[in-house]
Design a binder for these strands. Structure first.
Length: 421
RNA sequence: GUGACUGUAGCUCAGUAGGUAGAGCACUGGAUUGUGGCUCCGGUUGUCGCGGGUUCGAGUCCCGUCAGUCACCCCA
């Protein structure tokens, strides 16, 4: 009772469930590539400093969720907790900005955050995301938000809410922060314990607190949208206008803040309600981070991006009925037939068919057939003593009441027809 | 990091007032003299998470521990 187990919060994805992952990944690629995004693959491990500088020292991710270790006692490395920082690093490292004015990248893969696991939240989880560099919006912002919505519709996620807000630039955020503190300070005692702590660390996050005692207070708080500078305001209005022209369903949520330090101006989050989704209902989130590239030591280049959580999407997606597959199973009645089955199977596979055999030396035809049927295969080829002697194969369609015989020589040529008929 | 709940066959679970384990599914053989999906009959599988305690006796009670799940924090 002491066999090794997977690390807490890190899950295997078994063959019977990987089909849904493939479908999601395929649709994501298809969608974003049609918008001109190209894939980038970056290492899973990065210098720790990359994340502390881009995500922000005071964020939960950096403060307590990173898998950080010393590489042979020297450099501090960490498992990437998100994809944006790595992309920004690669963008600078390869001086992409010198090559093209606008860059559209997408990525997908595992991310690592050492949190307590819950439904829809794991220590190794998967994100797919996009980054746009060199365009300060707001039209790209709208286009990309609309792209995410289209993608979700395409993969059958229903019942979503698209929340949009603006955090303005650094100076409006500073002015708003002061105003918010002025409003909250007198009511300090009425706030939840968590929020009293947030007063010091990140007062903006009190706005989207789930604690009931905080909600009423947050309700009456000043809105950041009233503090937007003229430029910020114009940006936001154009974003909203473009989304309306696109017909994207969205809501302005002035209390949307999100936990990463690097955001400026546009911010959005897509929440799901349907399916098996638990309390973690944020399917996708992103926004604009115009200062990040510069903070990493690069030129001043605006950026916009988002990430979506694959595991959560899978929970929110409706379950589709598995169709019978274009798959062939060869059954063998005895040892000689089993040998013949391997030979025949190879020939069919060389012709690009998906072929399975049940080669267990003791399996009865009955159990072979039962297994083939339950596996969802479409066609069964039976090699019995009689058939072997006569050089024929008996075929049987599992999804219809059809069967017949075909000679071994003619089989390859007719297989396609047998499957499609 | 905090809290709640749960840990019995591969899976889902039952287990009565403490008397040393059961069902369904799955797998497998047969009824069907080679031929699935329905039905019937038979068969295989368990250190009852782990350690300790109470007791003549513990899956069942107590303590501890580990693991899982869900929620909070936060986020995808």
């Amino acid at each position: 009772m002491n066999t090794p187990r997977a690390v807490k919060g890190m899950n295997d994805i078994l063959p019977h469930e990987v089909g849904r992952w493939h479908r999601l990944e395929r649709e994501f690629r298809k969608t974003v590539e049609s918008y001109g995004f190209g894939e980038i693959r970056t290492p899973l491990v990065e210098p720790t400093e990359l994340f502390t500088r881009s995500i922000g020292e005071a964020t939960d991710i950096v403060e307590k969720e990173m898998y950080t270790f010393a590489d042979k006692g020297e450099k501090s490395l960490t498992l990437r907790p998100e994809g944006t920082a790595s992309c920004a690093r690669a963008y600078l490292e390869h001086t992409i900005h010198a090559r093209e004015a606008v860059t559209r990248w997408y990525y997908m893969g595992p991310m690592y955050r050492r949190e307590r696991p819950a439904k829809g939240r794991y220590r190794q989880f998967h994100q797919a995301g996009c980054e746009v560099y060199g365009d300060h919006g707001p039209f790209v912002d709208a286009e990309v938000i609309d792209m995410v919505v289209s993608f979700l519709e395409r993969v059958g996620v229903k019942d979503i809410r698209v929340l949009v807000n603006s955090l303005g630039g650094p100076e409006t955020r500073a002015r708003y922060r002061t105003a918010l503190l002025d409003y909250l300070a007198p009511q300090r005692e009425k706030l939840s314990a968590d929020s009293q702590r947030r007063l010091e660390t990140n007062p903006l996050r009190i706005l989207d607190s789930k604690a009931p005692e905080d909600q009423a207070i947050a309700e009456g708080a000043p809105s950041i949208l009233d503090f937007l500078s003229e430029e910020d305001r114009k940006h936001f209005d154009l974003l909203v206008g473009t989304l309306e022209s696109l017909g994207t369903p969205f809501e302005i949520e002035r209390r949307l803040v999100r936990g990463l330090d690097y955001y400026s101006r546009t911010l959005f989050e897509i929440q799901g309600r349907g399916g098996e989704l638990g309390a973690q209902n944020a399917l996708a989130g992103g926004g604009r981070y115009d200062a990040m590239i510069e903070e990493l030591g690069g030129p001043s280049i605006p950026a916009f991006g988002f990430a979506l959580g694959i595991e959560r999407l899978l929970l929110a997606m409706s379950e589709e009925a598995p169709a019978t597959e274009d798959r062939v199973v060869i059954l063998a009645a005895n040892d000689r037939a089993r040998t013949e089955a391997t030979v025949l199977a190879r020939a069919l596979r060389l012709a690009d068919h998906r072929v399975e055999t049940d080669l267990r030396p003791t399996a009865s035809l009955k159990s072979q057939l039962r297994r083939a049927d339950r596996s969802g295969a479409r066609l069964v080829l039976i090699l019995g003593e009689d058939e072997l002697a006569r050089g024929v194969v008996q075929w049987k369609r599992l999804d219809a009441d059809k069967k017949g015989e075909v000679s071994r020589d003619a089989l390859l040529g007719q297989l396609r027809a047998l499957l499609d008929d």
